[in-house]
Simulated assay, not measured.
Amino acid sequence: MITLRNQYLSVLVNEFGAELTSVKAEDDADYIWQADPAYWKRHAPILFPIVGRLKDNQYVYQGKTYQMTQHGFARDQQFQIVDQTETAVTLLLSQNAATLAKYPFNFNLRVHFELHAHELAIRFTVENPSDQLMLFSLGAHPGFNVPFAGAGNFTDYFIRVAPKAKYRKIPLKPPYSDPADPQELDFTKPLSLNHELFKNDALVLDLEGQQTTLMLANTQNDHGVAISLTKAPYVGIWSPYPKQAPFVCIEPWWGLADPINATGHLEDKFAINRLSGHQSFEAGYQLSFF
């Protein structure tokens, strides 16, 4: 386990999955969900090379069928430490025999964590070291304790989005998405949390690539977390239903689950990213804790 620390925050990152597992402030309360398997066994997995689920858990590429389960394989792979200081670390995952059996591309996935005062910045770099076109999706899935430090109940918490607007919501017909039938979600005012919000799975907002900040806070104290996204096309808000789970995830996505009418061909996949040979793709988000 990797520890990052400054005068305000203490952070733990697991080399397995390059997963953020803990962020504690001065009062020693953890902001990050602690992976109780009764509800959800993960903390903040990385989603690569797909986000969500493929139709029938498979896809076809260049005439060959590949099997891959929900959210891809990065969350279950051992990353290597490339560089580390007291306040920052970079981890790397590259193709190996296990990944090539599911995903026939060479790649380098770098994940960089860095502390700046009350903020933790997470940056992803996807590199295509080959000559061929690379197709991929990418996402983050951080879970946050609700309630935080025992303050109030789930329904005392809310999510506020900036800029305030009515956002295009992409419905899910679990486990698939339905981008052809968009709805509307009003974030001109804060969204109060309740478990029924998630009866149809995650709330997925189409951000259209604009810079967006989502703040998770409560009516009982001044503690919370803000997640700032730059050029993320989508963000998911999720808590498992019908479980009364004491956490909520706010998930920046550079990709989306297969639509209900997906062809199954990777080249046709909705919201897929295309990366030319010897090029790189950068994305990320920032977490501010208060």
Rank of each mutant, 00 (worst) to 15 (best):
I81L: 08
V82R: 07
V82H: 02
V82S: 06
V82K: 04
V82N: 01
V82D: 03
D83P: 08
D83Y: 13
D83I: 10
Q84Y: 09
Q84D: 12
T85R: 04
T85P: 05
T85V: 09
T85W: 07
T85N: 06
E86T: 10
E86L: 10
E86V: 13
T87D: 04
A88E: 09
A88C: 04
A88G: 04
A88M: 03
A88K: 02
A88H: 03
V89Y: 03
V89N: 02
T90H: 01
T90C: 05
T90Y: 00
T90V: 04
L91V: 04
L91M: 10
L91Y: 06
L91H: 07
L91D: 07
L92K: 14
L92F: 08
L92P: 09
L93F: 06
L93A: 08
L93T: 06
L93P: 09
S94E: 13
Q95E: 15
Q95L: 10
Q95M: 11
Q95W: 13
N96F: 07
N96W: 07
A97F: 14
A97S: 15
A97R: 11
A98L: 15
A98V: 15
A98H: 09
A98C: 14
A98W: 10
A98I: 15
T99F: 05
L100A: 08
L100W: 05
L100P: 02
L100V: 09
L100D: 12
L100R: 11
A101P: 07
A101W: 02
A101S: 11
A101C: 06
A101K: 11
A101R: 07
K102T: 05
K102P: 03
K102E: 13
K102R: 13
Y103V: 03
Y103Q: 06
Y103F: 13
Y103R: 10
Y103H: 06
Y103K: 02
P104G: 02
P104Y: 01
P104F: 01
F105P: 02
F105K: 03
N106K: 11
N106H: 11
N106I: 08
N106M: 12
N106A: 14
N106G: 12
F107L: 08
F107K: 05
F107M: 06
F107E: 05
F107C: 08
F107Q: 04
N108A: 15
N108E: 15
N108G: 14
L109R: 05
L109K: 08
L109Q: 11
L109I: 04
L109H: 11
R110T: 12
R110C: 12
V111E: 09
V111F: 13
V111S: 09
V111Q: 12
H112E: 12
H112T: 13
H112Q: 08
H112C: 09
F113P: 01
F113D: 01
F113W: 09
E114K: 04
L115S: 01
L115V: 02
H116D: 11
H116A: 13
H116I: 11
A117H: 12
A117K: 15
A117E: 14
A117Q: 13
A117G: 06
A117N: 14
H118L: 08
H118G: 00
E119F: 00
E119S: 06
E119Y: 00
E119K: 12
E119I: 00
E119G: 00
